[in-house]
Computed example of a mutant assay.
Amino acid sequence: MSGKEGTAPVDFHCHLDLCPDMRGAFDRCEAVRCITLAVTTTPKAFRRNQAMAGSNRYVHAALGLHPQLVAERADELTLFEEAAPSTRFIGEVGLDAGRRFYPSFALQTQVFERAMTLCARLGDKVISLHSVRTAKQVLDIVERTGVHRTCTPILHWFTGSKSEIRRAIDLGCYFSVNEQMLKTLRGRSLLETVPLARLLTETDAPFQSGADGPKAPGDIEGAVSMIAESHQIRAEYIKASVRATAKALVGE
């Protein structure tokens, strides 16, 4: 691996299909050799993302059923189950107990547990997990289904307590972090607790805001700087570490 590629960006949770120019977003990530997990919010959206990723080396489309959409899209769980064997990458899935989405929480739980049971049985999945106000419940389902034993769970924008972070580490989870979350007390606590080898960078584009508006996919410099400051290690070393972790997860 060349030195330049070894420090190329990693964006392990972003929504390329929700960017204003979907094709351009895919092409830019590939052009800069950004290892990208392009998560989707519905199984119907996954097929288009999968086709657009095509033979790309660096951009990987993930099959998702977002908890915030479960109330109106639960019937797509069958499509999720049909598509799951065709991909190693799952996301965005999980639970959301925010005020707007709590009315569907029981249904979210049923859908998420069924999805994780399937992934546990199929094995060899890399899974990006949503856990808004539900760290304990998400980890309970990860543990109960045994998906952590056959797959690799990655907690996206995780805001759990230190004890929940340690529990997730014990379960073998990884964590994808972005600049906006790392500016919070919970984000800094995560950096103090999680081993560097379990960290990945993400943008959650186009949903993370920066000084100049929404973050573009692959724009992880701010997150890298904050990780480097926390660990008192040069940014180039952080980039190389994150890159090595991402390459191992995607099977390069």
Score class of each variant (00 low, 15 high):
161 S>W: 10
228 A>H: 08
67 P>Q: 04
140 D>W: 03
182 L>Q: 12
61 A>Q: 07
132 V>Q: 10
193 T>N: 09
9 P>H: 11
184 T>I: 03
93 V>M: 08
172 G>H: 09
97 A>Q: 14
173 C>L: 13
203 T>C: 01
144 R>N: 10
249 L>M: 14
252 E>R: 13
110 Q>G: 10
224 V>R: 01
145 T>M: 04
73 R>P: 02
154 I>N: 05
130 H>V: 02
70 V>C: 08
207 F>A: 03
26 F>W: 09
36 T>M: 07
189 S>N: 15
85 P>K: 05
155 L>A: 04
222 G>A: 09
29 C>M: 14
195 P>M: 02
224 V>S: 01
87 T>P: 00
117 T>V: 13
53 A>S: 14
218 G>R: 01
1 M>D: 08
47 R>L: 14
251 G>L: 10
235 A>N: 06
53 A>M: 11
23 R>L: 14
39 V>H: 05
192 E>T: 11
216 A>N: 10
148 H>V: 03
137 Q>S: 12
21 D>I: 01
160 G>W: 13
136 K>C: 10
103 P>L: 05
165 I>H: 12
46 F>L: 05
143 E>I: 00
233 I>W: 04
100 R>Y: 00
40 T>E: 09
139 L>D: 08
24 G>Y: 02
114 R>C: 03
107 L>N: 07
226 M>N: 01
97 A>D: 15
184 T>G: 04
37 L>D: 02
103 P>E: 05
22 M>N: 03
215 K>Q: 11
43 P>H: 09
200 L>V: 08
226 M>W: 00
144 R>K: 14
132 V>A: 10
143 E>M: 00
227 I>H: 06
100 R>C: 02
166 R>D: 12
175 F>Y: 12
32 V>K: 07
114 R>K: 15
198 R>C: 03
201 T>R: 07
177 V>Q: 06
80 F>E: 05
43 P>K: 09
71 A>D: 13
